[in-house]
Design a binder for these strands. Sequence first.
DNA 1: CGTCCGTTTGAGGATCATCAATGTCCGTGG
DNA 2: CCACGGACATTGATGATCCTCAAACGGACG
Lengths: 256, 256
Amino acid sequence: MSRPRHPAEGPPADVFARSSAREPDDRPLLRIDPPNADVRSDPLQTLTDEQRATLGRISTRTELPRGAILYEQGSPADAVFILTEGTAKAFRQLATGKRRIVAFLCATDLIGLAEGAVYVNSVQAVTRCVVHRIPVPELTAVLHDDPRLQYQFLRRIAHELRDAQRQIIITGRRDATGRLAMFLSMLERDPCNVGKPGEIALTMTRSDIADYLGLSLEAVSRAGRELRDSGLVEFTGRSRARILDRERFERLVNDV
Amino acid sequence: MSRPRHPAEGPPADVFARSSAREPDDRPLLRIDPPNADVRSDPLQTLTDEQRATLGRISTRTELPRGAILYEQGSPADAVFILTEGTAKAFRQLATGKRRIVAFLCATDLIGLAEGAVYVNSVQAVTRCVVHRIPVPELTAVLHDDPRLQYQFLRRIAHELRDAQRQIIITGRRDATGRLAMFLSMLERDPCNVGKPGEIALTMTRSDIADYLGLSLEAVSRAGRELRDSGLVEFTGRSRARILDRERFERLVNDV
DNA sequence: CGTCCGTTTGAGGATCATCAATGTCCGTGG
DNA sequence: CCACGGACATTGATGATCCTCAAACGGACG
């Protein structure tokens, strides 16, 4: 029997059973705005109050404690979710016992829209999360009635596709150090990264990073040490990073 | 119209300048139908004749010879394309000179919808291709007027996202043999694979496969030899493969 | 029939996974 | 406030796998 690589398992999946009560600040928090770059290029990218109200009407707000499972791969994909607070991870459990994280999700992210009849990924809360659950039938009806809203969703999936392709590029690198550097660079650009200026918040564990980068957690650790020893990055505690030598860091990131 | 044969590199970027004449069989070929599995689960997934007519009205049919470049990363993303014949590859040229293929595209695939203001990938014809070019402004107008059509596009991107995630899973494997096996398994399931029954058509080169799998082309070659020596797969010429030992092959594929 | 491009094969070196043990952070409770 | 415990992270040693460089081979096509 080999040592379990992922000790902390989540609570049972019926987190929605007891949380149908609507919160007062429900509607205003509902956003699926694309990241800044897109907003600038197209000011129509933001949801109107009306659209938020519409989504609020058909959605259920829920809080997920750290480690809670939002849904599991293989279960019927009957709802999508808008993440309004916290960080989550979408991953696939593989036959060999390994797991592969295919996306980290953060505020304003859309979850579960790209699934088929059943979820092909599992989604688990990395930190405490607030999500809005929208049943698929209600969603399709709303999207049919509001083409502009549907267009927001379309843009949003397109954005997720670009993210997935970026992960493919990052993972394509052979050196662990370069992969970690690109990962940090990605987090730094992430609008959800709300640390002190100049700091990168690492909400996930090294094991999660490893599962995202396709490395062993030891390799991630060694890559971190390499970045520190080279004077490129400074790590504070487990969850904070700061770029010390911007020029060399960017050179490493771009040397794909 | 005489078309010069382009050796390995693509023709100038204005391939659409001379091809505004509509072909007679233009409209019926226009399809963005999802693969079989989705169609079965939801019969509404097919485009109506009306929708095809609408798309035909705003699209321009073009043929691309083998090796032609449809668009290049960095150029303004002012149009999307529906691929109706042939195989293409979407790739990113990296600073180190390597290239990474992020998707192989085949008939009914939607190309360029997930791009931002400028294309982040280049797309090149692997075989002779027929594509329909749709300018973005016209497309968004049409999608706004027909929510059901827009929903088809949404589903289509969602499908591409799942494909990208599958590529992440495949690439996550450490052994070249297993990666190649999963790649063959993927091609086998592909509805575009129109070889003799039991045969898998490999329209792309080993180098392309390597760039997709994140391996060197030598590693792909050796993985192929491994599959042959083990009696799992038979290769005929460069472009045909056949599964000989189904059970062991599937066992290898699923041993992720 | 010869050339060219793509493919195969070989040898050596670099990098990461794995196994195993130690070290550190952080929340919990006294 | 401090000590404790457990999860998380680091470090070390070894072996397997793939990349790189280099050369020979093969089929497609003129």
